[in-house]
């Protein structure tokens, strides 16, 4: 048993790194959907925007550039989310597929503009100084930057969980997920809540893009891959649930890492096989409420 554990420790650790990143990415998507029925298919494009911002600012591999990239990405994400919130306002009473059409259109535009601006080559980003190189974990090398990702991801998860579960703002968000009309009847402007949640959710996506850049680089098409992963996480966890997003992200992190290491023969099938399996057993995800199924 310990032999098995040692052998797969790196894979497990790596699953946590992927999981942390996926959680940062998915939590915004999940709350926005649960609260406002906005299916934001531009989430992946926001992530890629963050990655390309990292390319522009981290070029020299300095902490200054890294922090600048994070700051600018956060600002860009906040503004983009706010703008998206405004753009979806006229669609509030329309079928959810109209929002899918809008946000997918936006993601196509953003991705094309990025490819015009940065070209189609694969661009890579160095980790900030001090986080380059590897450390030894159970006799195997493991990159330091990914260890930091796990720490940052878990910290962010804790912060988001505390905010949503323990503060009055969080209570408002949870109440909006449960019954939007009631919140509105209490005299709270739904649009402001939506603006804030969509803004912060998109900000988390662009920030995740910067954080992931030293690992995944920046390239055309990354947005689509990431969007699908995030959607899978959100759906497995259950829409609108922070806990679901966390469990879903950690589960998919392990599936993508440990799962692939253990059964490489079916690596190509394992992600969507897991999704199908979860939805067959629990048609509304692990922590989804019934109300949302037909949202």
């Amino acid at each position: 048993m310990t032999g098995w554990f040692d052998e797969n420790l790196v894979s497990i650790l790596n699953g946590f790194a992927i999981g942390s990143l996926l959680f940062i990415l998915a939590v915004g998507l999940s709350i926005v959907f649960g609260m406002m029925d906005v299916l934001n298919l531009a989430h992946g494009a926001f992530f890629l925007t963050g990655s390309y911002l990292a390319v522009s600012f981290v070029a020299g591999g300095s902490w200054g550039g890294y922090v600048t990239a994070l700051g600018i990405a956060a600002l860009v994400g906040l503004l983009a989310g706010g703008a998206l919130s405004g753009m979806t306002e006229p669609l509030a009473r329309r079928p959810i597929l109209d929002q899918a059409l809008l946000t997918l259109g936006i993601s196509l535009i953003v991705a094309e503009v990025l490819s015009i601006a940065y070209g189609n080559d694969v661009l890579s980003v160095p980790p900030p100084p001090g986080l380059t190189g590897s450390v030894s974990v159970a006799g195997n090398a493991y990159p330091v930057y990914r260890l930091m990702l796990i720490v940052v991801g878990l910290l962010l998860a804790l912060v988001v969980w505390l905010v949503v579960e323990k503060t009055s703002v969080g209570a408002l968000v949870r109440a909006s997920v449960a019954d939007r009309d009631m919140v509105s009847a209490l005299g709270i402007d739904n649009r402001k809540v939506k603006f804030a949640v969509l803004g912060i959710g998109s900000m988390l996506a662009t920030v995740a893009g910067v954080l992931a850049a030293p690992v995944y680089g920046a390239r055309p098409g990354l947005d689509k891959t990431i969007l699908i992963l995030a959607l899978v996480v959100v759906v497995i966890g259950g829409l609108g649930s922070v806990r679901g997003a966390l469990i879903g992200a950690l589960l998919i992190g392990q599936v993508e890492s440990l799962g692939r290491a253990l059964v490489p023969e079916i690596a190509s099938f394992i992600l969507f096989g897991t999704l199908a399996l979860v939805l067959v057993v629990r048609p509304r995800g692990l922590f989804g409420s019934r109300k949302l199924a037909h949202g």
Partner: peptide, 9 residues
């Protein structure tokens, strides 16, 4: 995106 599982193999 991540080749680690296969590299471990």
């Amino acid at each position: 995106q991540d080749f680690q599982p296969f590299l471990s193999g």
